[in-house]
């Protein structure tokens, strides 16, 4: 493993670790907050009882354990996965606007899922993450290939434009399927906005192993992302096999994105927002950016999902709508500030 960052001073290490601990504490608080609120008002003591003295004959306990817990857990892993995926993409492509949604990965995963549901008549979730992953991988490769083959290579602009074009193409195909087939539109229209509701633990169990592989991979590869973020030449100078490492990172990104899409639909902008906020505080060392993105991404999505259920109670707002409403202004801000 090649470490490229400067050695940390003891105090920097201490601060960073402390920050991580604070992040964890915030995460736990958000998690508990998340499972304490919902359409039905429950006493906090009931929530605690449901967690520690579970009685499956009580419906209120079931609400906490069977409905809110899976949703909170899914928000947690999806938030972490998308943020880490975004962080890796931004590092590797040196593109501050990289986000799994903007670069066409999400529409690829969505198309694969729509095709699977419509034409194979797939109703089990077991293979959906894998199928979505293949869709995401294909569209990611396509976006990347197009952008790197363009004169000037994979610049922020070429990546974003090729992502927009490929998303537009895939969107047209999805529209045709929907217009011909009202049933698919009816059953998938909720999922296509990005939503955390209605998932059960079974689906999480199918996706979790993939996500763990992706997250562990990200942590292991993080030091070389720091190098790659400084440029391919400097990374190669540090003895990194650039092509191989980029391929490994791409696989991590795809796995993380695709399992997230399979679980929660195309939730936009999380992968864009969190890594930027993290970088504001942590600088450019990906050994810290990756774990921070994971923890704060998880807390962020938990928080957004709490809002999604509270703002119009007892009605819910689609979580994907809120992530876009919060995320898009940030994108605009970034363009104003970061793009010369």
């Amino acid at each position: 493993m090649t470490s490229t960052a400067q050695p940390h001073s003891a105090s920097k290490l201490a601060y960073s670790s402390l920050g991580l601990l604070i992040g964890l504490a915030v995460l736990i608080v958000f998690f508990v907050w998340h499972i304490s609120v919902g359409a039905k008002s429950l006493e906090f003591s009931t929530v605690l009882q449901a967690l520690f003295q579970y009685d499956d004959s009580q419906f209120s306990h079931m609400i906490v354990r069977e409905l809110r817990m899976p949703r909170a857990l899914i928000a947690l892993v999806v938030g972490a996965s998308l943020s880490v995926a975004g962080a890796l993409m931004q590092g590797v492509t040196r593109n501050p606007l990289a986000d799994p949604g903007l670069l066409g990965l999400m529409s690829g995963a969505a198309l694969a899922a729509v095709l699977a549901v419509t034409y194979i008549g797939m109703h089990t979730m077991a293979w959906l993450p894998l199928i979505a992953a293949m869709g995401a991988l294909l569209s990611a490769l396509l976006v990347w290939l197009v952008a790197s083959a363009a004169p000037g290579g994979a610049t922020p602009l070429s990546l974003t434009l090729s992502g927009a074009a490929i998303s537009g193409f895939i969107g047209a195909i999805i529209s045709i399927i929907h217009l011909l087939n009202q049933d698919t539109f009816e059953s998938l229209r909720g999922w296509l906005v990005g939503s955390l509701s209605g998932r059960d633990l079974q689906e999480l169990y199918w996706s979790l192993p993939w996500m763990i592989v992706g997250l562990v991979g990200a942590v292991v590869l993080a030091p070389s992302v720091t190098a790659l973020a400084m440029g391919d030449e400097s990374a190669a100078g540090l003895g990194i096999n650039v092509v191989k490492r980029k391929a490994q990172l791409l696989i991590c990104v795809v796995i993380l994105t695709a399992s997230s899409v399979a679980l929660a639909g195309p939730l936009g902008f999380i992968g864009l927002v969190i890594p930027h906020v993290v970088r504001m505080f942590m600088g450019s060392d990906y050994r810290w950016i990756v774990p921070y993105s994971a923890i704060f991404g998880a807390a962020y999505l938990l928080g957004i999902d709490v809002l999604a259920r509270l703002l119009m109670r007892p009605q819910e707002i689609a979580t994907g709508l809120l992530t876009a409403i919060v995320g898009a202004p940030l994108l605009i801000y970034l363009v104003r500030v970061r793009i010369k």
Binding site: R189, V193, G268, A328, L331, V335, R336
Partner: peptide
């Protein structure tokens, strides 16, 4: 929002705004 930005800004801003507006449209459809 693009202000006096250059063409790149204008396009990227358009993509960002488009994403936001499309999200609201999808929500309506949902």
């Amino acid at each position: 929002v693009a202000g006096k930005g250059n063409s790149l800004k204008f396009i990227l801003m358009g993509i960002g705004m488009a994403a936001l507006v499309s999200a609201i449209t999808s929500a309506m459809l949902t």
